[in-house]
Amino acid sequence: MQSLADYIRLYFIIEAQYIKARMQYRADFIISSIGMFFSSLATLGVFWVILESVPDLAGWSLMEMIFIYAFYMIAISPMQILFDHAWNIRFHVREGTFLKYYFRPLNMMFYYMSEMFDLKGLTQLLVGIALLVYASNQLNIDWTFLRLALLLITLFSAALVQISIIVAASCAAFWVIDSYPVLGLAWKLREFSPYPMSIFDGAFRFAFTYLIPIGFVAFYPSQLFLRPEEVSPLIYFSPIVGIGLFTITYWIWTKGVNSYTGTGS
């Protein structure tokens, strides 16, 4: 049986080897990183263009939008880097190669996800961190020890929310042949995470806060640092949302894994 320490050590060993093997494809790494750079900044570009014509977006200034966006970029990085293999579940399930993950004395989700480590996601992470530093400087945010701790906790739970949504969507592959659209939709929703939730009301606000809580990926946690006085108590539930959602996702994964019987008799 493996302890947490065992898993962490194993992860480092596997990924070190994986990265070494991938680095042989230097050109691919550079071009993908450039592609990642552009794609991650596209929506920010749209905000920038819009904010050239209006003073603020639902009361949020450009610099605040940049802060939220940077938070978003950092929060989605763990999903991008560590859980990228989720996109291939449908191929492995269809071709029967998913069986091999049952045979090792390892947690299956760990084993499956550890087979891919998305290097280009690091570009997004670095750009996100740079932007966050820049924006918080411009906004004169005072980073006390408490604030920093809060930042890490909220980033952690935001990452969990994003991971949960994508992995849960990818589990559709266990039951449906044409499962890609589910992932496609989940991925599209991610694009709306850096939007200020205050522009929404009614059904949309409800859906993005309680149903598929993309609001917790960037906007709500950012409020803690941008408008601490206006913060609703909801925000302090972020870690619970993150952990709760991941528990649900893990349950879905387990159900999927148990129902998969492979192809052939």
């Binding site: 596997i14 080897q17 994986y18 093997a21 029967g96 069986l99 091999k100 045979f103 087979e115």
Partner: peptide, 12 residues
């Protein structure tokens, strides 16, 4: 070991 699908790490 099951048939033609390897259980080793493909790229390593």
């Amino acid at each position: 070991v099951f048939g033609q699908r390897t259980q080793l790490w493909w790229d390593l």
